[in-house]
Simulated scan of single mutants.
Amino acid sequence: MENMRKKPRPRRSFTPEFKTEIVDLCQRGDRSVGQVAKDFDLTETAVREWVRQAEARRRWQRRPQGEVIFHSDRGCQYTSGSYAQLARELGVRLSVGRRGSAGTTRWPSRSSRR
């Protein structure tokens, strides 16, 4: 029996315009990344990488000038390590309130409810 292995496909290169069009198709929402990759005979890994790179470029293009401070409560989503890492990468300073200081979310006193 002959060797059943597929020959490796030669490496292809794509223009930035083509990659942008593929990313736009993925982000439109009517087709999955896998479906777009299949339709254009691309690997799903390559398409996902193009989408990731486009999102990173978009984040850096939208960067505000000056210091950005994000203030939040002490919810677990705001105090996680991965959230702090993303904030550092984006140059955002995190700020959390003191423990137990509900401030604006206090229940009204009995006298004000009458």
Results as ranks from 00 to 15, higher is better:
Glu21Pro: 01
Gly100Asn: 03
Glu49Phe: 14
Phe18Lys: 00
Cys26Glu: 05
Gly103Arg: 11
Pro16Asp: 08
Arg63Met: 01
Tyr83Met: 15
Val47Pro: 04
Tyr78Ala: 14
Lys7Gly: 14
Ser112Thr: 11
Gly97Val: 13
Ser101Glu: 11
Arg58Thr: 11
Pro8Phe: 13
Gly75Tyr: 03
Ile22Pro: 00
Phe18Glu: 01
Ser13Ala: 10
Arg93Phe: 13
Val33Ala: 05
Thr105Cys: 09
Ser72Phe: 07
Val92Trp: 06
Phe14Gln: 02
Phe18His: 00
Asp73Cys: 11
Thr105Lys: 09
Trp60Asn: 04
Arg106Val: 09
Arg59Thr: 13
Gly103Leu: 08
Lys19Phe: 04
Asp73Glu: 06
Glu67Thr: 07
Ile69Pro: 08
Arg31Lys: 15
Gln85Asp: 08
Glu67Cys: 02
Val68Asp: 01
Pro8Asn: 11
Thr105Phe: 05
Ala46Pro: 08
Gly97Trp: 07
Lys19Cys: 05
Phe14Ile: 02
Leu90Thr: 03
Ala102Asp: 03
Gln77Leu: 15
Gly34Asn: 02
Lys7His: 11
Gly81Asn: 12
Phe70Val: 09
Val96Arg: 10
Glu67Arg: 05
Asp30Leu: 15
Phe14Arg: 00
Pro10Ala: 08
Pro108Tyr: 15
Arg48Ala: 12
Arg58Lys: 08
Cys76Gln: 09
Arg52Asn: 07
Val68Ala: 05
Ala87Pro: 04
Ala102Thr: 09
Leu94Trp: 04
Ile22His: 00
Val68His: 05
Arg63Gln: 00
Arg63Asn: 00
Ala84Gln: 13
Phe70Gly: 03
Val68Gln: 04
Glu17Tyr: 01
Arg113Leu: 10
Thr15Asn: 03
Ile69Val: 07
Ile22Glu: 00
Ser32Asp: 08
Asp41Ala: 13
Pro64Ile: 00
Val23Phe: 02
Gly100Pro: 02
Ala56His: 06
Arg114Trp: 11
Arg57Trp: 14
Ser111Met: 08
Arg58Ala: 08
Arg5Asn: 10
Lys19Gly: 00
Arg11Ile: 12
Trp60His: 09
Ser112Ile: 11
Glu89Ile: 07
His71Ile: 13
Cys26Tyr: 02
Arg11Gly: 07
Ser111Cys: 10
Ser101Met: 09
Arg52Met: 06
Ala102Phe: 03
Glu55Cys: 10
Thr104Phe: 10
Val92Arg: 03
Arg11Asp: 09
Phe70Ile: 08
Glu55Trp: 09
Trp60Gly: 04
Gly97Met: 06
Arg5Asp: 14
Trp60Arg: 07
Gln35Asn: 03
Leu90Cys: 05
Tyr78Ile: 15
Gln85Cys: 09
Gly100Ala: 04
Ser72Glu: 05
Glu89Val: 12
Leu94Tyr: 04
Phe40Ala: 06
Trp50Pro: 01
Arg48Ser: 13
Leu25Arg: 04
Gly103Pro: 02
Val33His: 04
Glu44Trp: 15
Asn3Phe: 01
Val96Gly: 06
Met4Asp: 09
Ser95Pro: 10
Ser72Arg: 06
Ala87His: 02
Thr15Ser: 08
Trp107Gly: 10
Arg106Trp: 07
Gly103Asn: 11
Gln27Thr: 15
Asp24Tyr: 03
Trp60Ser: 07
Tyr78Leu: 15
